[in-house]
């Protein structure tokens, strides 16, 4: 039996640099083989100064090079490397992307436009869902949050919100935050979330990204379980009454991730209320799985938006 093709995706996010190597057997969904994650937190630099500083660039370069090597060691034929909001909004984003690509020995690090990021995350998260079933995917990243909805396997409508778990961590460092700090986080979220989000009644709602998938673990549930609004409120209360170190110790989740989960929970609580969601099912799949799918469909041109997507974007712009 021939070995399945192997592909890799690396997502240079605002919080982490994350590698996924997947096997892509013919006629079946790609199957994750290997994951590696490192907290680099490019978003912290961007939130503080609007650009990625030299130390963080050095760290990101080392991590990315190591992950590319690891992907090759695992036999990845193609490697997709994409960056999200941190580099999108950094004043030196393009320059950093070029330096990182050179350091890692890849042709290019693509800075993904928000609508493409949302579509890729949507494709990845809904992989395995009955085709054409109406879905909504919430992707709480470090510096932005994507709300994408549409039929599984099809083109999604996306709202990109310029606030993420890292944005809130950069804005409020107190642990636990004071009452005023909590209010400033709520205020930041309220000011960034679009006023015209439509309720997602009748949709299968999936949550993707490290924050949403780890939140259930802080409540002692399995990673990737569903979350209801009451449970998100319970999490917020836990964050309010004690430091993140306590939660990290109890749950076994990395301290860095727990600290990011606090802001993620603030965002998720608001989105669940505004979108009138009864629950969110955390999905282990997401952006990187979408990048793997795109590699399968379009090869080296994985990062080019599909024509249908371009039409949608042009239509929305008009």
């Amino acid at each position: 039996m021939a070995r399945a093709d192997r592909l890799a995706a690396i997502d240079v996010g605002s919080n982490t640099v994350h590698l996924l190597v997947a096997a892509a057997p013919e006629g079946a969904h790609p199957r994750p083989l290997f994951r590696r994650r490192a907290f680099v937190q490019l978003g912290l630099d961007v939130a503080a100064s609007g650009r990625v500083g030299p130390e963080r660039l050095e760290l990101a370069g080392r991590v990315l090079a190591a992950q590319v090597q690891e992907a090759r060691r695992h036999g990845a034929r193609l490697i997709a490397v994409g960056a999200t909001q941190a580099l999108r909004s950094a004043s030196n984003g393009e320059e950093v992307a070029a330096q990182l690509a050179q350091r890692a020995g890849v042709d290019r690090l693509h800075i993904l436009p928000p609508e493409l990021e949302a579509q890729l995350a949507f494709d990845g998260a809904t992989l395995g869902v009955t085709p054409r079933a109406e879905c909504m995917v919430l992707d709480i990243g470090g510096a932005s949050t994507q709300v994408a909805s549409g039929p599984a396997g099809g083109i999604c409508r996306d709202r990109s919100i310029k606030v993420g778990s890292g944005t809130l961590l950069a804005a409020v460092g107190g642990d636990p935050p004071t009452s005023a700090e909590w209010r400033s986080m709520e205020r930041l979220v309220a000011s960034r979330v679009h006023r015209d989000l439509e309720p997602a009644t009748g949709h299968l709602v999936l949550g993707t990204g490290g924050t949403i998938t780890n939140l259930p673990r802080l409540l002692g549930k399995a990673k990737g379980s569903s979350l209801r609004p009451r449970e998100v409120e319970l999490l917020l209360e836990l964050f309010r009454v004690g430091p993140a170190t306590d939660l990290a110790r109890r749950s076994g989740v990395d301290l860095e991730r727990v600290r990011l989960c606090r802001g993620g929970a603030v965002i998720l609580a608001q989105l669940m209320d505004l979108l009138q969601l009864r629950s969110v099912r955390a999905s282990e799949r997401g952006l990187r799985d979408g990048m793997i799918l795109a590699l399968l469909r379009r090869g080296e041109g994985w990062w080019r938006a599909e024509e249908r997507l371009v039409e949608v974007a042009v239509g929305a712009g008009a």
Binding site: R183, A190, P229, R230, E233, A269, Q270, M272, D273
Partner: peptide, 13 residues
């Protein structure tokens, strides 16, 4: 009530 808290927090804002 937990279900109303996100909305209450927006009212605080």
């Amino acid at each position: 009530p937990a279900d109303l808290r996100p909305a209450l927090r927006r009212i605080v804002v």
